[in-house]
Design a binder for these strands. Structure first.
Lengths: 231, 231
DNA sequence: CCCACTTTGTGCGTGCTTTCACAAGCACGT
DNA sequence: ACGTGCTTGTGAAAGCACGCACAAAGTGGG
């Protein structure tokens, strides 16, 4: 008998909501550390930097976990969001490309406490292989398939130069990994069913530059509320 | 009087479009390196990983830079997008927090070629101060205001631990920096008119985990690695 | 028990984004 | 000069996302 009753939440959670759940989770964990027992949507929203109506609507997609007149119980909500995000299980992550960024990720402590475990580090450079980084021995990229199998890797992180990224992605996919986080500045081509997310540091800077330039351009002496001007 | 004189492009480029311009730019530069002279919206879209209608509409916000029946001239489009993004000028960037991530960013070569120049590295740790990273001497955070002034820094990057991030942001703002890229896992509070973008590595992983779990849950009968039993 | 107060959950209007589909425009061959 | 073939630029429609505003639901005091 499959548990259908305890599933008030809709399977179709909006993507925009999913992207904010980790933010709420972080804010909640911070409240939890401070010993806070309950929190109102207003307070949690301001801690997360969003509008309170949006927060309530987001949470309503998971189910009715609040109490009117009181707010949300912090611990319970932490658990519900963690479960929804899949953080109650342990995800094994492999990082390919142990340059500066790969090392930074390997040493980033924030993962362990959130359901992720760095299970393997791989690199193509023979001089890198065997080095110890973040308490792991760097292994050669040729062992990718074997490592994925033996460590049960389900998430692959690519921090190689752009030229190598597609090859690594393909090998990840063939080895059975269907979630990839790509830091290389290329668009990866993967089969349907494989989930790729891209983080691009220089793109973020470029977006900042665009807004900075716009501010500098228009802000001259007519910083009026741009509205009805098309004379 | 309906004049539409020196404004081919509307100042109000949709945010969603701005976020994609850097992707197009990268694809175009790659084509340029390969010596390609013109490209169709179809080909450019597939290189950028988007739908061609979306690409055409995005570009139409900058003006009419294509030729029907032919496509877009690569070099010209590179220039137009660069100009729109503000990359034809040189942006001085300061990085605060020279840990693993800060070092990775400082050494990331991709910036120089795209209008950004790492102008200063700052850290609070006295042992770090004076070290040479990426051909720059790390300076103490106390010099932030002076460095911003003397180097003309207009973009601040925060790679400190979460606890220090708000303080650094405030100092950046007071020193006149109004564009901030934040890697620390906290929500920064800044005055209106200051632009903050946040990059959070563990959030990206959590979104991947959500989709991976959903795939494992619903996807028919192969819930192999999903060993969660916690009702 | 009832009333005043607080806070959630959500219906609804609004605006932004994406996608379709096609007329308009340009190049090239005849 | 003119038709053919290709590709852009853009109305129009559909789909999402956001935020207001309020009824519903719970708490606590008298």
């Amino acid at each position: 008998m499959i548990s259908r009753p305890p599933r008030p939440r809709d399977r179709g959670i909006p993507e925009a909501t999913v992207a904010r759940l980790p933010i709420y989770l972080r804010a909640l964990q911070s409240l939890e550390d401070r010993g806070t027992l309950t929190v109102s949507s207003e307070d949690l929203a301001s801690a997360a930097g969003v509008n309170s109506a949006k927060l309530r609507k987001d949470l309503s997609h998971l189910g009715s976990y609040g109490t009117r007149g009181v707010g949300y119980e912090v611990q319970y909500l932490v658990y519900q969001i963690s479960r929804e995000l899949g953080l109650t299980q342990d995800w094994a992550v492999a990082i390919v490309g142990i340059g500066n960024l790969g090392r930074a990720l390997a040493n980033y402590g924030g993962f362990g406490t959130r359901g992720f475990r760095i299970a393997a580090l791989l690199d193509a450079d023979p001089d890198m292989v065997g080095q110890n980084v973040a308490s792991l021995d760097v292994r050669h990229i040729d062992n990718l398939e074997e490592v994925v199998r033996s460590k049960g890797v389900s998430i692959g992180v690519i921090t190689t130069p752009g030229a190598s990224a597609q090859g690594v992605a393909t090998r990840f996919v063939e080895a059975g990994v269907s979630s990839i986080l790509n830091f290389a500045p290329v668009v990866l081509s993967v089969p349907d069913g494989v989930d790729v997310r891209k983080v691009d540091l220089s793109i973020e800077l470029q977006i900042l530059a665009f807004h900075a330039q716009r501010r500098a351009d228009g802000d001259g002496r007519a910083p009026e509320r741009a509205g009805l001007e098309l004379t």
